[in-house]
Amino acid sequence: MTLLKIEHLEVFLGGQHILEDIQLILERGEIVTIVGPNGSGKTTLLKSIIGSLQPTRGHITKASGLSIGYVPQHLHLDATLPMTVSRFMRLPFQRSRLQIEKALNQAGVAGLGKQQMNELSGGQLQRILLARALLESPDLLILDEATQGLDQSGIAAFYRQLEAVRCELGCGVLMVSHELHVVMRTSDRVICLNRTICCEGTPERVSSSPAYLAMFGHHTHDTLALYQHHHSPSPMELPS
């Protein structure tokens, strides 16, 4: 089932093209990751999809009744705003205590419901944001550099959680990430973005494409090879 179809998307902001001629189709159940250097339009693309930014040209077609769970890059909480985790989970839609507990469980932060939001650690906050996105029982989960500020083990744990959630809900996942080696391991498809889509495909294909190598250099290639060697149950075709 197609969740999302983007055709000829173009965003023109502040006198320059941020995105040009973006074509993208997202299917249910797949994890698609957008990689690209700073200022390549990754966040702009996500913002166009959730509707907080009006594209200059092009169409974004969403499956009818598509529910989107969105995990922002970071949530700045003003210290003057008191907010418990469970109250945050009930914004803006009313949820039962059971639903909230289930979502916190899914995101790996069970039992934090009574905590104040601004007393959480960075990793806890990101997981709470994930839990809140899961409450919508999303068809499509959108994450914008959701692991920023987490340490290595935190990142790995976060992605494991994400894969588990994907299996449980069967939702599509679209995310932006800088954690190249983890991305390559968890994604079904990688999109390399730099104003336009430079290349896309399976992680193996993208990581050996000239456009990707020009952008991120060859050393990431080695990390990938190492990873695949480690985790593939059967010998996998390595990019030549």
Binding site: I50, I68, L81, P92, F93, I142
Partner: peptide
């Protein structure tokens, strides 16, 4: 509730 979520984060509000 709408005012609260819009106060917290405008992108979260848009997504809802």
């Amino acid at each position: 509730s709408n005012l609260l979520i819009a106060t917290l984060n405008s992108d979260l509000a848009h997504a809802c």
